[in-house]
Structures are given as C-alpha cells and as structure tokens.
C-alpha cells in the first residue's frame, strides 16, 4: 500500500486518497482536501506545460515533517500529502493534501497550514514553459 506522504510522477486519484485518510478512524467527522492543479496562465503568459523538480530524500523528509507537525499542532486524526514531479500538462493534478478531524474547523485549519508550509519549506521547484521559453518560478503566492 502506498504511503500517506509521497512524491511521485504518476497521477493520483483524489477519491482514493480521501478514502484512505477518511477510513483511518471511525472518529473522523470531517475531511478537508486541497487539490492544486496546473493552470494555463502565469503573469499574463499562456503556459504550455509545467515541470516539477525535487530534491529526493530531503523533499520527502520535509513533507513527512509537515504531516507530523500537523498531527502535533492541530486537533486532527490523520493527514495525507501527495505531490507530483516531472512534466505536467495544463489541468493535471499537482498536489493533494487531505486532513481528517473530528470537527471540520480543525481539518480546514490544518489543511491550509500544510499547503502554506509546503510552499515554504519543501525543496520542489516549478518550471513553466510559455511561448517565450522556459522559466523557473520563484515566488509562491
């Protein structure tokens, strides 16, 4: 069985990932998920494709730490994080964070914190290909 925290090139099933987190405990009363997808516009430029690169081992370690800190600091029961790497077309899934808690508010807060933290501390980089060429993205709004 795949782990709760993963980096992979292949796509993931949102339904399966939510089910995996939802069913860890019968105490779960609310599940919040964030799905990041590949949009077609960046700073007014039409994007043709995206490519994600990561620092193997360190990126997985940082994602794992985010899950553990979420479990320590929020009143949640479980969290799963999946991030894709490699070349992605517009519309494809990039990242999924699923938080399960007894009550919805804890799940919302943990999920929002986790995606913000992922953008801040996980060594993953996005390269956008537009009509003007390729550029590594630096900011993370």
């Amino acid at each position: 069985m795949a782990g709760l925290v993963r980096i992979q090139s292949e796509d993931f099933s949102v339904e399966e990932e939510v089910k995996r987190i939802k069913t860890v405990s019968k105490e779960v009363g609310g599940v919040v998920s964030f799905l990041g997808t590949a949009r077609n516009i960046s700073k007014g430029e039409k994007i043709v494709s995206l490519e994600f690169e990561h620092y193997p081992v360190m990126a997985e370690k940082k994602l794992d730490e985010i899950r553990k800190r979420a479990l320590d600091n929020f009143n949640i029961i479980e969290m799963g994080i999946v991030h894709r790497v490699g070349r992605l077309d517009i519309g494809e899934n990039i990242v999924l964070i699923v938080a399960a808690a007894r009550h919805r508010n804890d799940a919302f807060m943990a999920c929002e914190w986790a995606i913000a933290e992922l953008k801040r501390v996980v060594p993953i980089w996005k390269k956008e290909t537009t009509g003007k060429g390729e550029v590594w993205v630096e900011e993370h709004p």
């Binding site: 994600f52 990561h54 990126a59 991030h83 060594p123 980089w125 590594w136 630096e138 993370h140």
Partner: peptide, 10 residues
Amino acid sequence: VAFLPPFSGG
C-alpha cells in the same frame, strides 16, 4: 551540500 533556490512547489 545543496544550494536551494526559492521553492515553488504546490
């Protein structure tokens, strides 16, 4: 030792 430019995952 790795040099890590600003991250842009997510």
